[in-house]
Nucleic acid binder design. Structure first.
Lengths: 207, 207
DNA sequence: TGCAAAAGTACACCGGGTGCAAGAAAAAGC
DNA sequence: GCTTTTTCTTGCACCCGGTGTACTTTTGCA
């Protein structure tokens, strides 16, 4: 099925990304030029941009799959379960599984990569843009599967995405400060529980 | 007090910004280079960057004052008023006053500028970053004046800022589609009321 | 009026990103 | 197997945003 052409393309794609990430982790994102990445991947600079629309994508394309994750969760929730419950349970499960998107993964490579995204403005910006996409998809899922009016759906989606991001950043920061994922786990659970409770019950009871 | 030096600087600052915005509104942000702005303002390109750290700031510096607005509202609320109530009332008052930050201002210049910010990725990104700052300031205000624990404060701040943005984008879109501010007003009020109610009472009751 | 500090300028440079045209390689047709 | 055609890659020149630097001009003040 996969012609030689496709396989080669896939290999080149991976080679470029791998070379880029290795260099970035070694010397820092801003300290590595695309030209250097091209050289390391034994490809021309022009080809790098043929595979990746922008420098940031050399890193963030790895997270692209998760853009529609929350929408999927809402769509695939067991009948009788509220969307918010499903989203919370999914996040809690992610914590237990040390899913990188929860920020609770202390595998050095992943930790370093996450830190890079967090600390490099250009990458953070790109990550934020992914969240906008996630929010839109989630809002649509809420509208279609829970019969929620549009404004409410967008509101809820925005909040869920923001909470998700906030929690994962907190977890990541704890790990970046030296805590192990196992050490952080219970606090991460508590924080997530609290955050989703606030979301469900409203701010009125907490302010 | 204002020496000649300072006055001249202020004038140059304004001249550059004015020239830039005029050009941008005329031909589009991306279609105008900084060199052209410099030329129009009768200044060297280097001087433009002496006054504005980046091209985007030629536009967004005008919004910079509002970064701490929500924090101010929380800090200055009348005793006995909850922070969320104060924030809602302030937003509703902004709608009545056609405050541009609510998106409900149809003065052509302002409308065009807002539209530009909304539609130009680089500018939107910069605007989002301002919101991060607003969120941080608001979280701190909540912590200090309402005795809210840190996580809750950051959570609440993030949500308030997000809601604010969402509402103003909706209003702006309505006006951009040709509605007058007066026509949109009642729907804007209703939307804001609803959004703040969801925020206060939680998503559980709405999903 | 003379002088130090501040502001503005010219210029060379870097890095991200694109358009283009020509060359290399794979796929399709015979 | 060979040609033709399509797709990929490359090198090159170029644009634009942004910065370092060294030089000239302006301004405040003694």
């Amino acid at each position: 099925m996969a012609g030689l052409r496709e396989r080669k393309k896939a290999r080149t794609h991976a080679a470029i990304s791998d070379a880029a990430i290795a260099l970035f982790l070694d010397r820092g994102y801003d300290q590595v030029s695309v030209a250097e990445v091209a050289e390391a991947a034994e490809v021309s600079k022009r080809t790098v941009f043929a595979y990746f629309p922008a420098k940031e994508d050399l890193v963030v394309h790895r997270f692209a799959d998760h853009e529609a994750e929350q929408a999927r969760v809402v769509r695939g929730r067991p009948p009788g379960t509220g969307p918010l419950t499903a989203l919370r349970d999914h996040f809690l499960a992610g914590l237990r599984d040390r899913d990188p998107v929860t920020g609770l993964n202390d595998v050095p490579q992943i930790l370093a990569l996450t830190r890079m995204v967090r600390e490099t403005p250009a990458l953070r910006t790109r990550a934020v843009r992914f969240q906008e996409g996630a929010g839109k998809a989630l809002a649509q899922a809420l509208r279609e599967t829970a019969g929620v009016p549009e404004l409410t759906a967008r509101l809820a989606a925005t909040q869920v995405v923001a909470v998700h991001w906030l929690l994962s950043m907190d977890n990541h920061r704890a790990l970046a400060d030296g805590q192990s994922a196992d050490d952080r786990f219970s606090a991460a659970l508590a924080d997530a529980d609290h955050a989703f409770a606030v979301l469900a019950e409203g701010l009125a009871g907490y302010l």
